[in-house]
Structure formats: structure tokens, C-alpha cells
Amino acid sequence: MKIKVYISNFMQYKLLLKELVLRDVKIKYRRSVLGLLWTLLNPLLMMIVLTIVFSNMFRFDIDNFPVYLMCGQVIFNFFSEASSTAMSSIIFNAPLIKKIYVPKYLFPLSKVLSCFVNLVSSVIALVIVMFITKTPITGTVVLFFIPVIYALVFSIGMGVLLSSLAVSFRDIMHLYGVLITAWMYLTPIFYPISMLPDFLKTIIMFNPLASFVEMFRDVILYGNIPSWSLHLRCFVPCLIVLVLGVFVFKRQQDEFVLKI
């Protein structure tokens, strides 16, 4: 019965969610000459810079390094941006929350979805790079949406969790920058897992972002159908983080007005 109430409530405010997402996208590129074109240019330019650095300075033995690198970038950059912006969404929307009733989960959710718009553009940029580098296109590319959905669900869970924690513990907004940097280095974005010592390989096995990236590369670059064990390594963290995030957010949301 409660599920029906939640769905009805969400449907009632879906237009507001759409407006919040559009607002975030417009604000991000407001007064920019190229506007939304930056959602394509940013991943392309970063790929070029990092490819030059890691191909010439570190010389990792990775075939088709530009596509390998960009597959990691697309997933991790989405999560990093989505979770970081969602974390501060309740605090930054305090004036609106204090004035009228709005389902508070809409704010972190809208931040994640606006970043998802950038993710879609990044995937388009990845396709462009694949054509430029003459990467073979296999039938498994049609499965690209599966790791993308895993990343989206995980980001929503982390977004609502962090946004609720940030209201009570503002220091987390500063600490998260350090955490996300460490998380990036523990995710095989620009290096092969084979170069790591065994104890680090074990740690990375429990890193859900590494699993999302691995699955994304499997279907995009290597033409492999993801194994059930890989699906399990992706699904379980998504479920745990989403349930935990919703639980913590629901328990604390009535106190947001008193703390923001």
C-alpha cells in the first residue's frame, strides 16, 4: 500500500523533477558560448590530454588506450559529479524547502539525473572516439545500457545518502573531495589491473565502480557478454547503497528544516 502512495506522490511531482533537471543543465552552461556542446568536448579533451600523458610518460601496455581510458572516464566522472552535486542539494535548496512542501528526495535525484544528461553526451563522445580510432564494433555494444543503469542506481543511492548526511555533518562535504580522489585511484581508469599487487586486486574486487567500468569495457571494447558473477558484483552494491540511502534519508528528512 505504501509503495502505491510513494508512486502516486512521485507522479504528482514528476513535472517539478523535470524542471529541476532542466534548470541544473541550463545553469551549468549559462553564458557559455558553446553551451551543451561542452558535454561532448569535455570528455574528448580530457581523453586527449590523459592519452598523451599515460601513453608517452607511463606507457601502459593497453591496446586501444584512448577507448580503454574513456570507458573508465565516462562511468567514474558521472558518479563523481552526480554524488558530489547531490550531496549539497538539500543545503543549497534550503530557502525553497523552508517555504513550501516539496518531496525532498527530488533535489538529490534531480542532481543525479542532470549529471546523467552529461553521461549520455559522454557516451556519444565515446562513439566518436571509437570511429576515429577504428575500434571494431561488436554486437555486445547494444548492452552498454546495463552498466550505465548500474552506475545510475548506485549514484542515486549515494546521492540521497550523502545529501542527508551532509545536513547534519557539514564536514563530509570537504572530506568527500579527498575520498573521491582516493576512490578514483582505486578504480582502474587509466591503468590495467594486472599491474597491481595481489592485495590491491582484492580491494578493487570490492570496488563497485571498478565492476561497472569492467562491464562497460566488456560490452564496448572487448565484445564480451558480462558474466553472472560480474552482474552480482554490480547488483549487490547497488541494492545495498540504494536501500541504505533511502532508509537514512527517510529517517532524517523531517529534521532537515531544523538543520539547514
Rank of each mutant, 00 (worst) to 15 (best):
V25F: 05
L37C: 13
D61F: 01
V33H: 05
G157P: 07
D24Y: 01
I91G: 06
T85H: 13
L175W: 06
I3F: 13
N224T: 09
F92W: 08
S121L: 02
L50E: 11
G159Q: 07
A166Q: 06
K259P: 01
G35T: 10
W183V: 02
S55D: 12
V25P: 06
D24T: 01
S164W: 03
L34A: 11
V112H: 10
I146V: 15
F169E: 07
F60P: 12
K99T: 13
F107C: 11
S55C: 10
Y176I: 03
I48P: 14
S194K: 15
T51A: 11
A125E: 08
P197T: 06
V129M: 15
W228R: 14
L209H: 08
G223V: 01
L40Y: 06
S168N: 15
L242G: 09
F212W: 00
M57K: 14
K18P: 00
A94N: 08
A210S: 14
G72F: 03
V241A: 11
L152Y: 02
F199I: 05
I260C: 12
R59L: 08
F249A: 10
I240F: 10
K111D: 03
F10I: 05
T135D: 06
L119Y: 02
F92L: 14
Y13R: 03
S55T: 13
V160D: 08
L37K: 09
P197G: 10
N64A: 14
S163T: 05
D218W: 02
I220R: 06
V148Q: 04
M47W: 03
V5T: 13
M173R: 15
R23C: 03
R23I: 02
L113C: 11
R23H: 07
I146K: 12
W183F: 07
E19G: 02
M46P: 08
Y176E: 10
Y105C: 02
V117H: 09
L119H: 10
